[in-house]
Write a protein that binds this DNA or RNA. Structure first.
Lengths: 303, 303
DNA sequence: TGTTGTGATAGCTATGAGTTATGGATGTCC
DNA sequence: GGACATCCATAACTCATAGCTATCACAACA
């Protein structure tokens, strides 16, 4: 049914040498092993490939018929191996960078520059991931590294470098009562004033991250009112503008949501947001390590 | 280095099903066996072929690169198998008929007709063999059946059917003294009159056959004079015409030597020649058996 | 929360691809 | 013609591997 490529290689060698002993030497196996393998191949094909005269070995008609196919298949396999090696190398040098929203803050160009200076062959590829996955593709392997918001669910599966720590804002519809209140109070609001507001939440799959953007730890155990579930910056903008609810934002992301009817004001009394570059803890590939190292350096510089 | 075709087949199946269990069923092997084989292939290539998410199996970039090659090689092997089968069938139906000189006597067309009436696919192929090989190619396998002169050296290795038994003639140059003597004596000569003539002999490799055409058994142990060694009808004609020696002939072969300066006259006192169709005793192939059977029938009819 | 589906793992067996040692036939050299 | 070299086949053994069954781990789903 199938052949082992080796058998074809052996066959081609014997066909070329027309001498089992020399062919075996060339193949770095013993002569009996070669004899046996050729016999097995002949048995499998149900036809002799060589005429073993006492004095000479020569191809039979069947052998002649097989030889060009054997050469073709050996060449085809070499080509296949080369294709695999190439694809493999390309994969080695590709770094998939997951992100839920554009990290902005000039981070991507800075990290890219640092990465390619260390690994000139590196090909960073950006990948947008739904907000439902707080690991931005790390969990299912679709990203190699990712921009994530801390805290990360299953945090011990990852390692990360914080690249930005910023106060959180709240996005409000332009006419909201708290928008006016903030204008009176140094342009900020207390989180306690937001406790009864309906909040836009991440999908429940987001786990701890959903709780974090609801600032659950600042609510003293009282459940938040959920005004809706959002999966992207665009949806958030729409929902806020429509008055479905308010939403906490990282300062660096305000520009994605604030426009038209929506404004954002700082919130006092909650922890700042922390944006990190993360990778799977067990992923030791050089490119991944280099990207994380670059991020750590950047984070150290800007914190 | 090499692949087993089986592994490519397995890979292609999994790539198509994107499900190990179903692919294994389709391949009539167990799922663990398939898993293991794919892992081995991946290990051999040094790259993963499939992305095994908990929920889904999908090809990696490397797998995508390999797949078309795998399909190509599987198709190539099918083509190779077909080529082998075809060549094998052709060989099955080919009967190589060895002969030292054309057997004449209408034997070839008669036997050919009988053979193809029994085996319509049979392709008889004629092969001229040097006189040095009295088995006309049977010994070294270059003929399947052969027209031979009895006695045959290593006679027990062959089986045969006598197709012609004829008095032997002697070929003489036209002006030879015995040519005239024969004309006086019923057109024949006694072998005793030839004892001192130089004889043309077959090459020494011919063994008993050489002795036979020197009629050694009719010489009472006295060595013949050898006038030369001949390897074909043409050489014999030349040598006789030149007076190098005389030569015994089968009646049916006289026409090959007798022309121009050479005549042939019957010889009294020696056994007749026996022409047979022979095959290797251990060669039981239907075509060979059929040819021999046809020869036996023909021999029985004409003897 | 049990059930189903799916892939990986473990442990076993049989096959097969390799080894060395040896046999037997042929050809070669003095 | 005898010693020797060449060459393919066979025998007996070893070790890797391709297959099996049984089972686990995990996700999806009802």
């Amino acid at each position: 049914m199938d052949v082992h490529g080796r058998d074809l290689r052996y066959f081609a060698a014997v066909a070329e040498e027309l001498n089992f002993t020399r062919a075996a030497e060339r193949l770095f196996i013993s002569q009996p092993a070669l004899s046996k393998q050729i016999r097995m191949l002949e048995k499998q094909l149900g036809a002799d490939l060589f005429h073993r005269d006492r004095r000479a070995v020569r191809l039979t008609a069947v052998g002649e018929a097989l030889l060009p196919h054997a050469h073709g298949m050996l060449a085809a396999w070499e080509a296949a191996e080369a294709a695999v090696a190439e694809a493999s190398a390309a994969e080695q040098h590709t770094l998939v960078i997951g992100m839920s929203t554009s990290p902005g803050r000039g981070l991507l160009p800075a990290l890219r520059t640092r990465l390619v200076s260390r690994h000139p062959h590196a090909r960073p590829v950006l990948r947008q991931v739904n907000w439902a996955d707080p690991s931005a593709g790390l969990a299912d392997g679709s990203s190699d590294v990712a921009f994530v918001w801390l805290p990360l669910p299953d945090g011990d599966r990852y390692r990360y470098a914080v690249v930005a720590q910023e106060p959180r804002l709240v996005a409000l519809p332009q006419g909201h009562r708290l928008a006016r209140a903030a204008a009176d109070s140094e342009g900020a609001v207390d989180f306690t004033d937001l406790l009864d507001e309906p909040f836009l939440a991440l999908p429940s799959e987001a786990g701890p991250l959903r709780d974090y953007w609801l600032a659950l730890d600042a609510r003293d155990g009282r459940a938040p009112r959920i005004g809706g579930v959002v999966g992207s910056a665009e949806e958030t903008h729409e929902a806020v503008a429509n008055g479905q609810g308010v939403a906490l934002l990282a300062t660096g992301n305000a520009s994605l949501v604030v426009r038209d009817e929506v404004i954002a004001v700082p919130v006092r009394g909650i922890s700042p947001s922390r944006l990190a570059v993360a990778a799977r803890r067990d992923d030791e590939r050089p490119l991944v390590a280099a990207y994380l190292a670059a991020a750590a350096k950047l984070g150290a510089g800007t914190s």
